[in-house]
Design a protein around this nucleic acid. Structure first.
Length: 579
RNA sequence: CGGGGUGUAGCGCAAUUGGUAGCGCGCGUGGUUUGGGACCAUGAGGUUGCAGGUUCAAGUCCUGUCACUCCGACCA
């Protein structure tokens, strides 16, 4: 197409609100335009990239036998009541009413809709296993959208749902998806994406992986073992055993610590290492109104996801406890010994398991215990894994101290959700013996816009998008110098443009009356993998100058009769590329 | 939900003690240029987020409201 007609102007300045590469480049390059918080229009360039990504996903889904469907964005309260999620999900689920005052929602995911869809279409075991998917809009009323397309409220997602009559069948499908996802990331140009074990969260189920692109802009924390390859989301990462900081037993002693409430102050006051101090992190369960006290060694932090999973409660039901005069809690001086609290849940983290002597609050204002030995002074307690892993911990698989913690962007996930929704919605099929059974499910998601942004995080620089050829908005970008005035340049350019189009390439011709600098800078933001420069200088030598993605120097190709040489050159160049 | 910040031309920003809105980029026109964001001339573009209030006079002061943004919480 002609660049003079392209809607979505490039900006000369870096957008002030953008702190990460993908966000800045997408705005600077005229790819996206914001309409409201977390809601964006995809301009032509972005739409082209997105379409290519969608087609890669579509091909991979079709290849594993999934059937494409399209479910509506709007659903009724009634549907979401069938799973109980209308009430259990917080304000991320956007609720509204239609003209008849019927309660409606904008779907944030489609488990309910899919089960509803499949319910009476698969009443015989002979239909199973089967899998449906869609590439469709989701709306999640995120508390805080950020980072351009990385976290938005309205977005396109590929969501697939498989139905099975046995665990073996589900596991088989799960593996197929695992490999299909690897293919998708490879073809989209970010083969460095890794799969990590993850929390199943509110989706429920028995197993889950997230596909993560490790990069600084990511919102998730990923633990990877450099030796054995163990990898997990920080939320579920664990270690087998935490070595004791001290093995020396000491006698229990109550010490006066006036107004010393924080770990830092206690460390300064006692001159004891942080690892010799224990802390109490206090939460409140909103569902039972119980106080939850987590004891953990002071050098470690509570992993709230692990804690929630342990207590089997929803995210919003566990909150940090606010200090309250009537609590009978000596805030700042809480410890396991002499703790007088009724109806509280007390949890000891494994980081305390091997400690022989540790400082803890004495549950009395201005006093701590020194030399506390939990086994001796409290008795036998159960130690549970509720703390965040740290990079000096031993790998739970190979036991080596080779863990590394990185940021990652979640570019896909796969879950075994088992029968959570089929059961709740009473979906059944008849088995060989005519007996009614509940099918089990897997579900598999990829955020398309986030994937596009992630590719930029992985490949782009602050000035160049460097799209992989498979998803670049154009195959070829022709940048003529002095196109509007130099008759010979225009003639040769038009001839080239037409013959490339005739050969099926998606070509962008920069026909604007702009200086070469502007054209090249814009070309870097558009990122076609092949750029051809036509200029008076080159025509004098009877050549065309070709710049190939990833190759520093440009290549000179003879400007031959009917563009035969350049067509061959392009065809050969593209032969080794992944699409 | 907690804490900060900002709303003035398409974008980035300025406007002194309250005195009737300007600069750069971009855009239109004419011309000179043409290998990494050229130059000259000329022009268009605004209900200063919105609604009240104070004042002879409000972008500026007051009240309310809406939106956007950053940090944190949350994130199936």
């Amino acid at each position: 197409m002609l660049q003079s007609k392209l809607i979505g102007d490039t900006k000369k300045e870096w957008p002030s609100e953008a702190s990460i590469k993908s966000h800045g480049l997408l705005i600077k390059g005229g790819y996206i335009k914001q309409m409201a918080t977390g809601i964006y229009t995809l301009m032509p360039l972005a739409k082209k990239v997105i379409t290519k990504i969608e087609n890669i996903i579509r091909e991979e889904m079709n290849a594993l036998g999934a059937q494409e469907i399209l479910m509506p964005l709007v659903a009724t309260k009634k549907l979401w009541d069938m799973s109980g999620r209308y009430d259990t999900i917080g304000s991320e689920l956007l609720k509204f009413e239609d003209r008849n005052n019927t309660k409606m929602v904008l779907s944030m995911t489609h488990e309910e809709a899919t089960v509803f869809t499949a319910m009476n279409e698969a009443t015989s075991y002979q239909k199973y296993p089967f899998c449906v998917y869609q590439i469709q809009t989701k709306f999640r009323d995120e508390a805080r959208p950020r980072a351009g397309l990385i976290r938005v409220r309205e977005f396109t997602m590929k969501d697939a749902y498989s139905f099975h009559t046995s665990d073996e069948s589900l596991n088989e499908e799960y593996d197929k998806f695992y490999h299909a996802y690897e293919n998708i990331y490879l073809r989209a140009g970010i083969k460095e994406v890794i799969a990590v074990s993850s929390d199943t969260g509110m989706m429920g189920g028995s197993g889950a992986h997230e596909f993560m692109l490790l990069c600084d802009a990511g919102e998730d924390k990923i633990v990877v073992c450099k030796d054995c390859g163990y990898s997990a989301n920080m939320e579920v990462a664990y270690t087998k055993d935490i070595a004791a900081a001290t093995n020396m037993e000491e006698k229990l002693e109550k010490i006066y610590t006036p107004d010393i409430k924080t770990i830092e102050n206690l460390h300064d006051f006692t001159k004891e290492a942080i690892t010799h101090i224990g802390k109490a992190v206090i939460y409140e369960r909103l569902d039972t109104n119980q106080t939850v006290i987590a004891f953990v060694r002071a050098d470690r932090e509570v992993n709230e996801t692990k804690l929630r999973n342990l207590l089997k409660i929803d995210d919003e039901k566990l909150v940090p406890k606010k200090e309250n005069e009537n609590d009978n809690i000596s805030y700042g001086f809480v410890g396991p010994k002499d703790l007088k609290l009724e109806n509280a849940i007390i949890i000891y983290d494994i980081s305390l398991k091997n400690e022989k002597s540790i400082i803890f609050g004495a549950n009395e204002k201005d006093y701590h215990f020194k030399g506390l030995n939990i086994k001796r002074d409290i008795g036998e307690v159960e130690y549970l894994d509720i703390s965040k892993i740290i990079d000096t911990d031993a790998c739970p698989i190979c036991s080596k101290h080779s863990l590394r913690i990185s940021n990652g962007i979640e570019v896909g996930n796969i879950f075994k959700i088992q029968s959570k929704y089929t059961k709740a919605m009473k979906m059944t099929y008849l088995d060989e013996k005519g007996k009614a059974k509940t099918p089990i499910m897997g579900c598999y998601g990829i955020g398309v816009g986030r994937l596009m942004a992630s590719v930029l995080e992985a490949k782009a620089t602050d000035k160049k998008v460097n799209w992989p050829a498979s998803i670049a908005p154009f195959d070829i970008h022709i940048c003529p110098v002095d196109y509007t005035k130099n008759i010979e340049v225009k003639k040769q350019t038009d001839m080239l443009y037409n013959s490339l189009l005739k050969n099926g390439y998606d070509v962008l011709l920069d026909d604007r009356q702009k200086s070469p600098g502007v054209k090249f800078a814009d070309a870097d933001l558009i990122g076609a993998p092949i750029r051809i420069v036509v200029s008076p200088r080159n025509l004098e030598e009877n050549i065309l100058e070709v710049k190939i993605l990833g190759i520093e120097d440009s290549i000179k190709v003879k400007n031959a009769e009917k563009n035969s040489e350049i067509l061959d050159f392009i065809c050969n160049t593209r032969k080794g590329w992944i699409f």
